[in-house]
Each structure stands twice: as C-alpha cells, then as structure tokens.
Design a binder for these strands. Structure first.
Length: 569
RNA sequence: CGGGUAUUAGCGCAGCUUGGUAGCGCGCCUGCCUUGGGAGCAGGAGGUCGCAGGUUCAAAUCCUGCAUACCCGACCA
C-alpha cells in the first residue's frame, strides 16, 4: 500500500476546519488545513505525505526539463567550510543571513544558502581542459537562510528546497546559449506546472556577477516583489531594475533668479510642500548614503525614490546604507533636511532632475531653502545617472506606453555570472594552444518549495486548493459515500483497483464519515477529479466532478472509468 | 534591529480586572442512531496554564526576568 494508490483511512493526514491563528495568506492557511505541511519553528516546516508528494512532482518536472537541456544532476554538500565563503568574499556580504556553526575542532562551518562557492571549487579541481566545457550541473537541495523575518507561510522561510544549476563556459557566446536554454526550460517548467508566471528583467543582487538576469515571477497579491510591466508591449522588470523613458527637460527660460526663503524645521518633503505650496515634483532633494564607508549624496526630485539596487550598481559598492542623522551633519555640514545639491560631498544626480524648471533646493543656511532653482544653472550636474524607482505615470523604455505595477512571488532567477566566482577561486581551463583562461559561469535558481506555495496561492477558491493536474498529489479522489452499503463498497473498490492497475494515482476515501465531511475534505485537498460513489449505484451510476469547474457528469461505472482515464492521460 | 500582540488539551478560544476544585467549541475514543455537503444523543480520554524566580495560607490570575511565536516598522532628509 502507499505510493500511487492510497486508502484515506491509512493516510497520515489531519485536515483542519479552522484556519491556524498565525496563518494570514491563503496558501499558508490552506497548506496547513489540507494537511500538506506543519510548522516546526519560525520559517521551518515539515512536509507531510500529501505536501511531499506535490513537492516531489514539482521537482520531477524540474529535473526532467533540466535533463532535457543536458544539465547533469549532482548533490552538493549543504554543510560547507566557511573558508570557501571567505575566499569568495561573500562571508562578509551574506553576514548574518547565513547559518554558521563550529565543529568540535572549532572549525567554522556554514549551512549553504546557495552553492556557487562549492560548485566552483569542484570545477576548479575537476576541469582543466576546454574539451570538458561547456558543462552544466544542477541539484535539488535544502538551502538555509537565516531570514530576518520569515513570513507568509512557505513563501519566506529559513529552510527551503531549491533547484540550482551552474554552467561553465569558455566563451560568452556559449554562456548565452545555455542561458537561453535555461530561460526556455524555465518557461516549459512553469507551463507544465500549470501556473501563470512572467519572466522579468532583474537585478543580480547579492549573488553578484555581470551580464543578464531574469526573474520568474508568479503574479500574486501575496508577492513581496514589485514588478513594473508595460501595459502594451512585453517589457517587464523587477522594480529594482525597471527603467523608464527619461522625463523631458524642463523649460527654465522664464525662471527668475533664485531667492532664499525661510523654512524652519521642515524635515520632510511633505512639510516643505505644505509650507511653500509647491508640488513634490518641484523639490530638489538630497539623500545621503554611506557606500563602503564613503558618504555620497543622491540628488533627485522630491516625488522620486532612490533605487538602492541601481545606486549600488553605479557605485560598484558592496555595502550601502542610509546615513544616520549625525553622519549627515558631519559629512555634509548640514542637518537632515537641509543638505542641498551643492553640498561638499560626492553627489550623484538622477537624470530626471533636469525635468525641474523652477525648483526648491536646500542651497541656503539652516532653516532656509532657495526657490526658483534651476538644475545646471544654479548648481553643477556632475554625475547624472538613472538612480530612481520608476513610478506610476512613467513610460515604457521600449514602446513609450504607460507602465503598470504588480506584486509577484519570485520563484526563479537566472544569471549570467561571468567570472565573478572563477576569479575568486582562480578557476581556469587550458585552450587548444595550452593557454590558461578564466572559466565563464552562469547560475540558475528555482525555489521548488516556494513554487508549491505559489501554486496554492494562485490556484484556490473559498473551499480549498485546486491542484493543477501536473502536480496534484493524486489524480482521482474516489469518495465512497457510505462504507455500510455493500454495493457502493464493491463499486468503489473495483474502480479503485482498476484505476491503480491502469497507472492512475488514486485516493479512496473509505472513511466511515458523513458525506458532507468527505465532500468538504475533498474540496479542501483539491484533487482534480472526484468520483462520488453513492446511492445512485443502485442504478449503476456514479458521479464525476471536476474540482476546478465544478462540472458534474453522471455516468455508469464503466463510462466513469473510461472518462477518468481520458481526463488524466 | 525597533515597536506591538500573543503563549491555557491536537486546533480555535474563554477564564486573569476582583488570587481559592481549569472551562467551551472543533477534533479524538466507546456505544446508539444517522448517511449526498462539516448531523444528533449518551459516555469518555486528554492540560507541568511557555519557562524561571518572587509576593501570598493559596497564583493560569499579581510582580520581575527570560524564552518562543505572530504582526508592523526599519528611518527617502
């Protein structure tokens, strides 16, 4: 027993009628209520049989598509020496987000949040010739990240399952090819999984590296990422990466000379707007950051926000944070709120500051601002870059149509890493002439346990989960209405055995429960096809119900068998 | 890291103000009855009241500390 058929009386499963108190989002509530998972501690979950069946199905699909593009499966260690991370420089970058421990000899060990270091080390040891390249390795592993705040059930956790792949190349063209293969494989994976997704341009973030990067997003209210997407063409990008058409330069030909006005105690843009009765788009603000220990000012319009990912990229900085009030005072010589674009620190200007034709800037003393300020006329625009988040009203960089914003769950992320890690480990191959060159790398992640949550988040109704057929824990759920009725039992057992013999994954609800309980549990569990065997068996009839559409067909037992085979194959 | 809330049976909660035998609903076990959308009746099992101190004749309840969990925020000048 077990495997592809199961009697519900034997299934390790407790469904719950009420939502657990700490579950807020639908996927978390349903996964707990339907008995897929149980929380052990913050951000750490047990997968129960039903949940694990689904996870394995997701992973099997991922594996088959990885295999199809020639990637080879390995299993890298979850436990890794800290030295590797020190060598790559990421021990510091990751900081407290990594679980760290010491072994009995006080050697420092980390639990892998990802595996670039380990796999590069492996390749460094094993690959020496161009003849061995290109090669792509992948694994499905449990990863560990000590998240500041786990949340959203299985969406942001500290221990999770992830497929990660790494490719190694002798040329950028070869990397491009594998990157495209991966991109296409990911599209096939999400199509096979039966979920709606969007591939978006992304920032490469902490993993580092140069070159392209795409994220695969499941659009959902519960998502933590913001996606900016064009309303007419297919441009879409993570907000961290999204760009817009530059705003038109303002016409300052009629702007009078600057004038100092008193603005005591205005600490925010909002206060300043109210006091001077100007819109935020006419304020020229300066935000002070510390990038790798150096103070740098960012000058942009009052209604725009600094995009820290862009700022980090422009500066090439590893660490970036806002300056504290005290640091602002000592670095720029003015209190927070009164640092102007002429402050005596390195200043970066957002390119759209040039859209201001008659602005307000803190280019005077404390508790004063200048009005009628024109960028370029009244202060120098030394370094002009795109450094802000796109906002509502911005135009698509490809087709000029308006951009719109969505929440998304990041379920996959692919990168062209370049030589970020092979530089760190001095990983080279010999070419046909015997000359050594750095190996070029790509890496490709896909969070399988997060995909599970994302599917539930996207595919449910008020009664429960609606599994896409490809990942459903079982294909057919036979609900035997009364275990006391011999005719029903006989018909149910017969169908159960025939479906199993035909290779259909089938769950038989043989519990001595009232029909309402069984129907509600079946809806909660979300198996795509339900066969109800009840008192219509007297007329030789059973009922077939589609979980997603709710469509019901009344058929003979024989017809039902044939129809079910047709539906699941 | 900061703030808030919570912690009492497997799950959801009451009890705490005003200290005195630990309760309810769901679930679970037994029996009867019932059987097409979470029935009913009867009986029953199950709790170091998060942990450690303190106050008191007496603490789930008051006080102190700690732990854990959940939520919100983490400074755009």
């Amino acid at each position: 027993m077990g495997g592809n058929w199961m009697r519900q009386t034997r299934l390790f499963l407790n469904t719950m009628r009420e939502n657990p108190a700490d579950a807020e989002i639908a996927s978390h509530q349903l996964m707990v209520r339907a008995g897929l998972v149980r929380q052990l501690t913050a951000g750490v979950y047990t997968f129960l049989p039903l949940g694990y069946r689904v996870l394995k199905k997701i992973e099997a699909i991922v594996e088959s598509e990885m295999d199809a593009i020639g990637a080879q499966e390995v299993l890298l260690p979850a436990m890794q020496p800290e030295e590797l991370w020190v060598e790559s420089g990421r021990s510091e970058t990751y900081g407290p987000d990594m679980f760290r421990l010491a072994d009995r000899h006080q050697r420092k060990v980390v639990l892998g949040p990802t595996h670039e270091e380990v796999v590069t080390n492996l390749i460094d040891n094993e690959v020496s010739s161009y003849r061995q390249l290109p090669i792509t390795l992948y694994q499905i592993q449990t990863k560990f990240r000590d998240e500041v705040r786990p949340r959203g059930g299985l969406l942001r956790v500290r221990e999770f399952r992830m497929k990660d792949a790494y490719s190694f190349h002798t040329s950028p063209e070869s990397l491009d090819e594998t990157y495209r293969d991966m991109h296409d494989a990911y599209c096939r994976i999400f199509e096979r999984l039966g979920i709606g997704y969007r591939a978006v341009e992304a920032d490469s973030g902490a993993i580092g590296g140069s070159g392209g990067s795409h994220e695969f997003m499941v659009l959902s209210e519960a998502g933590e990422d913001t996606v900016a997407g064009c309303t007419s063409c297919d441009y879409s990008a993570n907000l961290e990466k999204a760009v817009a058409v530059p705003l038109p330069a303002g016409d300052a030909s009629a702007t009078p000379a600057p004038l100092v006005v008193p603005t005591p105690g205005t600490k925010t843009i909002e206060e300043l707007c109210r006091l001077l009765d100007v819109p935020a788009s006419r304020i020229i603000k300066v935000v002070v950051y510390f990038a790798d220990g150096q103070a740098v000012g960012v000058c942009l319009r009052g209604d725009h926000e600094v995009n820290e990912a862009k700022l980090k990229a422009v500066l090439g900085a590893d660490h970036l944070r806002l300056a504290t009030a005290d640091e602002v005072l000592s670095a720029a010589g003015k209190r927070v709120g009164f640092v102007g674009p002429d402050a005596p620190i390195r200043m970066l200007f957002d390119r759209d500051i040039q859209s201001v034709s008659d602005g307000v800037a803190a280019m005077a003393g404390e508790d004063e601002h200048k009005i009628h300020v024109v960028p370029g006329r009244d202060f120098d625009l030394s370094e002009t870059v795109d450094i802000r988040n796109v906002v509502d009203g911005d135009a698509c960089p490809r087709c000029q149509s308006p951009l719109a914003f969505y929440n998304g769950i990041e379920v996959g992320h692919i990168f062209k890493l370049g030589t970020r890690y092979t530089d760190a480990f001095d990983t080279t191959y010999l070419d046909a002439n015997g000359a050594a060159h750095r190996i070029i790398m790509g890496c490709y992640g896909l969070g399988t346990s997060r995909v599970l949550a994302a599917i539930v988040e996207q595919s449910h109704d008020e009664k429960g989960i609606i599994w896409p057929s490809a990942v459903a824990p079982f294909q057919v759920h036979i609900v035997l209405v009364s275990v006391k009725d011999e005719a029903q039992v006989k018909a149910a057992e017969s169908l159960y055995h025939r479906l199993y013999a035909a290779g259909v994954e089938v769950l038989l609800d043989d519990r001595d429960e009232r029909p309402g309980v069984k129907f509600n549990d079946a809806d909660l569990m979300g198996v795509p096809v339900r066969v109800t065997i009840g008192n219509k068996i007297k007329e030789g009839q059973v009922e077939l119900k589609d979980r997603k559409t709710g469509d019901v067909q009344v058929l003979s037992a024989e017809e039902a068998f044939a129809t079910v085979l047709g539906m699941v194959k």
